[in-house]
């Protein structure tokens, strides 16, 4: 499903260049559960951002579903994100002025799903994630765990093939963190491809395939061992 071939990404901080991704090649199959670990600055978040088309690679090739994403135009990349990729971030990134339901409906609104259908799908997702009674609350009225579940509902409401989670439990206490992880893993068991970037060794070890990055390179990959 995902094919990375010698992908490079360099950031420039002042006159210093940082090789966030240094010729990374990676193959991921549909339905895999992968954790990416590594020290800060090892390039694990950059890897996730590249996979999520949130940034452009400098060189190399990234094929998603046999489509070479480097050849896509900006609107096509946006459409690909909309159709195939869901994101969960450490900081939730909910829009503060929108209620939980409106946040969840947002990706559907952007592609023009009719309001009735939108509402129905959002209800479904909220019921599934146990936040149906919080539908009309604003993010600031929700606990961290509830916020992350709203973000998760928003990520999966378009039924993406790929779920990318960047430190999804980083801001949560251990109990709500565990609950969110349970939900994410449940989604994976239903066929979604799951890639989790984390510092937490305990969370990382739960994945079926564990990748460790150091200095922009893949230092170890449990499937390759």
């Amino acid at each position: 499903m995902i094919e990375l071939d010698k992908v490079c990404k360099t950031f420039y901080l002042g006159d210093q260049s940082v090789h966030a991704l240094d010729s990374v090649s990676l193959h991921i199959n549909q339905g895999e559960y992968i954790s990416v670990m590594g020290p800060s600055g090892s390039g694990k978040s950059t890897l996730l951002n590249m996979l999520g088309l949130l940034d452009q690679i400098d060189s190399g090739r990234y094929c998603l579903d046999t489509v070479d994403t480097t050849t896509l135009s900006e609107p096509e990349r946006a459409a690909t994100r909309s159709e195939k990729i869901g994101f969960v971030f450490q900081a939730y990134h909910l829009i503060p002025r929108l209620s939980a339901r409106e946040n969840i409906e947002l990706p559907m609104m952007l592609v023009g799903v009719p309001p009735k259908e939108r509402r129905h799908l959002a209800e479904q997702a909220m019921t599934r994630l146990g936040i149906a009674d919080r539908a009309d609350h604003l993010p600031r009225q929700l606990s961290g765990g509830q916020r992350q579940r709203v973000a998760l509902a928003r990520a999966i409401v378009r039924r993406p093939k790929l779920l990318l989670a960047d430190e999804p439990t980083g801001n949560l206490d251990s109990r709500s963190g565990a609950e969110v992880i349970d939900l994410i893993e449940e989604l994976n068991s239903e066929g979604i491809t799951l890639l989790v970037v984390t510092h937490d060794p305990q969370l990382g070890s739960r994945a079926h395939r564990k990748i460790t990055m150091v200095d922009g390179r893949i230092a170890s990959d449990s499937s390759g061992e």
């Binding site: 999520g52 946006a78 459409a79 994100r81 909309s82 952007l110 378009r158």
Partner: peptide, 16 residues
């Protein structure tokens, strides 16, 4: 700006 980034992450194009 973060909202702009978020809208893009959720599938909105720059023009949108």
């Amino acid at each position: 700006t973060d909202e702009i980034g978020l809208l893009k992450a959720l599938g909105a194009s720059t023009a949108q």
